[in-house]
């Protein structure tokens, strides 16, 4: 049974105005096969948590730890974390000119598995996943994210999730900017990955909309760099009705 544990995590970033404290003691524990939704208002630190788990150099961990089955994730480089079984689906995936999706997927799969995938089954797996995500065959020969629409980029993220088969995935606002059809397709992909591999999911979202298609086992509300409240999926229903106002000391204008 795999487990991802985040303990008393404090994280800051450097800004033009100096060091800014963002996470102020986050505790979370995710078992394999569980779906945890992280919700919260803008600026509460949800994306910072995602990027800190993945190891983006912009974020400085001041104290605390992230353990994957007891191994200290914070001591690993970005690529070591991915090879250890962590995956981040990005909110804004970057373009890689001149690198085709096919080449990129094979390179990543080879890096993660430590050996090149068997060609015949690999091509079949890629085709099948692309069909499931309603991605046209021509995607394979396009350059990674170059000229992709917002929805295409998100589907490409989920394609990687399905093919690379991580143990834990962080989905950073994967629902943002998606129309309802794309949202359903992307959600199916996440549910499929969970069913096939026992994936544990940290689903970061501002809205409750995606939770109609991906049912969370736990909901954590982030406010001001901390978990302010947690509960089961009924908490999401309450947030849908009430919004985040009751967690904020001052009335939330705008």
């Amino acid at each position: 049974m795999s487990v991802l544990e985040i303990k008393d995590l404090h994280v800051s970033v450097e800004t033009d105005q100096g060091t800014k404290q963002i996470l102020r003691g986050v505790d979370l524990s995710i078992n394999e096969g569980e779906i945890h939704a992280i919700m919260g208002p803008n600026g509460s630190g949800k994306s910072t948590l995602a990027y800190t788990i993945a190891g983006h150099p912009k974020y400085h961990v001041e104290s605390g730890s992230i353990l994957l089955d007891g191994a200290q994730v914070l001591d690993m480089t970005v690529d070591e974390r991915a090879r250890a079984g962590l995956f981040l689906a990005m909110q804004y995936p970057v373009e890689i000119p001149g690198v085709t999706v096919t080449n990129f997927l094979r390179t990543a799969k080879t890096a993660i598995d430590g050996e090149a995938p068997a060609i015949r089954t690999w091509i079949k797996d890629v085709r099948e996943s692309m069909t499931n995500l309603r991605m046209d065959k021509s995607f394979a020969e396009r350059n990674v994210n170059e000229g992709f629409s917002g929805g295409e980029k998100k589907r490409n993220e989920i394609l990687q999730l399905e093919l690379l088969k991580p143990r834990f995935a962080v989905l950073d606002e994967t629902d943002s900017g998606l129309d309802v059809d794309a949202l359903k397709i992307v959600s199916e992909g996440v549910n499929r990955a969970k069913a096939n591999t026992g994936l544990g999911v940290l689903l970061i979202t501002h809205y409750t909309r995606i939770l109609r298609y991906i049912k969370p086992d736990f909901v954590h509300v982030f406010v001001n760099g901390r978990v302010a409240e947690q509960g089961g999926s009924e908490l999401a229903d309450r947030l849908e009705d009430e919004g985040y106002d009751r967690y904020l000391a001052a009335p939330n204008v705008g």
Binding site: A54, G55, H56, P57, T77, V78, D79, R81, A82, R83, F87, L88, M90, P93, V94, I96, F104, T107, A108, A111, I112, Q160, L164
Partner: peptide, 8 residues
């Protein structure tokens, strides 16, 4: 970062 986050 994107490529490394995919294990490369």
């Amino acid at each position: 970062f994107y490529l490394q986050a995919r294990g490369i």
